[in-house]
Nucleic acid binder design. Structure first.
Length: 205
DNA sequence: CCACGGATGCGCT
DNA sequence: GCGCATCCGTGGA
């Protein structure tokens, strides 16, 4: 934690204008904002401390790189909607960015747990705070996010949304994305510097 | 109907 | 740091 960080207090839900920009900008600005889910009837969520941008152009790691399919169609839709896809029997949660037709998104990779910690512990089957939301599939499990969230609007307080409330982090870091098998040269992963809640090895924080 | 990908995570070492 | 368990949804047959 850095003493230069300041706390924001606003319940305003992030709107389409926020998401309708380049994924790189959105990814950086999502750090320190608050992701909330009421899936399963329980309020869970936390501060976003790690994100990754997937670009609509020149990014072979982006799921929309080749063409639109049923799987990735929400990526081609309007900004401010969810793109959720299954991976290895788990899920990853993205916010769609830019205008319709441009397949880009921001993957939420880690949260500092804030709301519904007991419920998240139950869903994750662990009491370790640092292990609740430190990975894209971990946080989906903790927040009850599944494929049924794919294509949902994130700009109203229904099921899943993001509010301005949070922390203005001064120290952030950009690194290569984790786990991608192509376009490894692009530094499109954004992380709150030294955050113990982020995923990945320490030298990438 | 079925083969297979996939932006993972856990459990070892 | 690395191997592999795990499984849903897709799309081709």
């Amino acid at each position: 934690m850095n003493e230069c960080n300041s706390i924001r207090s606003s319940n305003r839900v992030l709107q389409q204008e926020f998401y309708s920009r380049e994924p790189k900008i959105v990814a950086r600005e999502l750090l320190g904002k608050t992701l909330i889910s009421t899936s399963g009837g329980k309020k869970t969520g936390g501060l976003i401390v790690e994100t990754e941008a997937y670009l609509s152009k020149g990014d072979s790691a982006c799921h929309g790189y080749h063409r639109q399919t049923t799987k990735n169609s929400s990526m081609f839709g309007p900004a401010g909607y969810a793109y959720v896809y299954p991976i290895h029997a788990k899920y990853c949660f993205n916010t769609v960015t830019e205008e319709p037709g441009k397949p880009s998104a921001v993957l939420i990779r880690a949260l500092q747990p804030i709301f519904g910690i007991e419920e998240m512990e139950r869903r994750r089957k662990t009491n370790e705070l640092l292990n609740l939301c430190s990975g894209p599939s971990k946080l989906c499990q903790a927040l009850g996010i599944g494929r049924y969230i794919d294509g949902r609007n994130l700009t109203s307080k229904r099921k899943v949304w993001i509010i301005e409330d949070g922390t203005n982090y001064q120290a952030t870091k950009a690194t290569a994305r984790i786990g991608v098998t192509s376009a490894k040269n692009l530094k499109l992963r954004f992380v709150v510097k030294s955050s113990e809640f982020a995923s990945g090895p320490k030298y990438l924080r």
